[in-house]
Nucleic acid binder design. Structure first.
Lengths: 135, 135
DNA sequence: CTTGACCCTAGACTAGGCTCTAGGGTTTAT
DNA sequence: ATAAACCCTAGAGCCTAGTCTAGGGTCAAG
């Protein structure tokens, strides 16, 4: 039920060096080492590694993922902690979407007014529509 | 109405070296230089610099931001070209929005089923999702 | 018992985006 | 007039998230 690093990497379709990198970053430690120094991983590592990749796909940084993983290992913690992190990531992403939509609007206007019917371009500049003000 | 590099940087809460870096990257050129070589910026640079920071937060690379900024600066003769570029940026951004919305949906679903405060981590749908299954 | 596939380490390298250092000139306030 | 605060350049160094290389050890099959 244990794996070498190569098998683990293949099982999750991750570069073998990436697995070693995650170890340096304390995200995924091998269960043990063989006498000759080979890393030995448990089946649990497959789950953990998948966790990392999934969470990355949802926009979490390795540091944030480490925190989530550490959290999941603390028996005294509850779902509220995890949920709060998910919640704040949701807000982060929602903000981005809103900003992107503002940018879309600016660009649409730019494209709309563009066909050169005497409209000065400055009237629909991206800067002007997307960002005039203070943030 | 003109600013030194230090004032500009302070106005947008950006490191002064970052402003110089953006100049090397052709994103933000000073209006002129004083006789002694000091950069002179216009009020417009503040907007432009803010735009850069905002767009970065949305996941655009400096190269992409340069392209966006160049769009709003293009002379009218290139109108067809401007329109085409705007159009392709629109598609890029729409893709980005779609990606973020997929993330949002996944995260929201996870958070929704998470029992939250006071419940043990074993019941956390978020961790469970990351840990289990095969994706 | 050797060949090939696999593993090890340290460290270099990448790209993008800064941030800092060294060494020096300029401006402003006292 | 001098010190603090500000500016200049070139170039080095740092972060994230890997990826790759060199030089070597180990393991399984024929």
């Amino acid at each position: 039920m244990s794996l070498t690093i190569g098998k683990l990497a293949a099982a999750v379709s991750v570069n073998i060096d990436t697995v070693r990198y995650y170890e340096r970053k304390q995200l995924l430690m091998p269960q043990s080492r063989t006498a000759s120094g080979y890393r030995v991983y448990s089946q649990d590592s497959v789950k953990r590694l998948r966790f990392v990749r999934k969470a990355q796909g949802l926009g979490f940084s390795l540091q944030e993922i480490k925190e989530l993983l550490d959290l999941s290992q603390m028996p005294e913690k509850d779902c509220g902690d995890v949920r709060a992190r998910a919640q704040s990531k949701i807000i982060e992403i929602e903000d981005k979407v809103a900003d992107l939509q503002a940018m879309l609007e600016a660009l649409s206007k730019l494209a709309e007014y563009c066909p050169g019917e005497g409209r000065p371009l400055e009237e629909c500049s991206i800067l002007k529509h997307f960002y005039e003000g203070n943030g």
